[in-house]
């Protein structure tokens, strides 16, 4: 039985008057990849963003309930959001490398957090992170080139490397492959599988096959509610809820 890295209890999220998430309770495993699936607008991305408090940046967004990271309430007043986000990294739907060099993209996080004492330590962090993201061999000769000059799939792996460079405990991925072609997608999925175990990974995906391929646990969201959560194999072969069944058999979505 895997231990829980994060756990959410009775989480409600509001955008102004509108409620986007209703009473969601869920545990995220340390060693597994957890997939959030559901039709668009079901709240899966919103919920993902509550896990590292990225919703704080949205004007008018309000979160209720309790979310813990290793038993600490991340919405508690003594929780430092800057350190929280260093521990819970995030990769976005569209690759968003900074308009800086590849090297500087990776070095950005370690630099602001002061994780490398000197240049050679920073070189090491950059190289290790690029290795882990499977990008090293492709970019090792062009580290000073702009990160925006890479292909879409490479940019997304650069963003993953950027998140890894801070050495987070959890990595949140918000539909990381939706803007990529199938070959790039396959590479990212392969990478997720390789990163599993080092980091707790939560991935939001629109693509059920992807969830089946990369995740061990799957949560199905519908209309802001968590409908069903369990082992991926069970969700896809033997769902307990009719709504889940309707969705995975393609009745709506």
């Amino acid at each position: 039985m895997a231990s829980h890295k994060m756990s959410a209890r009775d989480v409600n999220v509001f955008y102004g008057e509108k409620q986007a998430i209703r009473n969601v309770s869920i545990d995220v495993d340390k060693e597994n990849v957890t997939a959030f699936i559901g039709p668009s607008g079901c709240g899966k991305s919103t919920f993902l963003r509550t896990l590292n408090r990225m919703n704080d940046t949205v004007v008018g967004c309000r979160t209720e309930g309790r979310i813990e990271l290793d038993g600490e309430d991340i919405y508690a007043s003594e929780m430092d959001v800057v350190l929280l986000r260093a521990r819970v990294g995030m990769v976005f739907q569209k690759p968003n490398p900074f308009p800086k060099s590849i090297y500087e993209n990776i070095a950005y996080g370690p630099r602001i957090h002061g994780l490398a004492e000197n240049k050679s330590a920073m070189d090491h962090v950059v190289e290790t992170s690029l290795h882990r993201a499977g990008l090293w061999n492709e970019v090792k000769d062009r580290l000073q080139e702009s990160g925006t000059a890479l292909s879409g799939g490479q940019q997304q792996r650069l963003c993953i490397a950027r998140a890894i460079a801070v050495d987070p405990e959890v990595i949140l991925m918000d539909e990381p492959c939706s803007a990529l072609d199938p070959i790039a997608t396959a590479k990212i999925e392969e990478l997720i599988t390789e990163l599993r175990g080092r980091f707790a990974i939560v991935i939001v995906t629109h693509n059920m096959q992807q969830a089946a391929r990369v995740s061990q646990r799957t949560a199905f969201f519908h209309l802001g509610e968590l409908v069903e959560y369990g082992a991926t194999a069970d969700i896809f072969t033997n769902p307990t809820q009719t709504r889940t069944q309707d969705y995975i058999t393609g009745r709506y979505g």
């Binding site: 370690p110 994780l115 490398a116 050679s120 330590a121 070189d123 090491h124 962090v125 950059v126 190289e127 290790t128 992170s129 290795h131 882990r132 499977g134 090293w136 890894i164 460079a165 801070v166 050495d167 390789e194 990163l195 175990g197 080092r198």
Partner: peptide, 16 residues
């Protein structure tokens, strides 16, 4: 840059 970079998914943490 150092030569002793660990492979993908290596066990060493990125930082010390």
């Amino acid at each position: 840059m150092s030569d002793r970079a660990p492979g993908i998914g290596g066990d060493l943490p990125v930082t010390s």
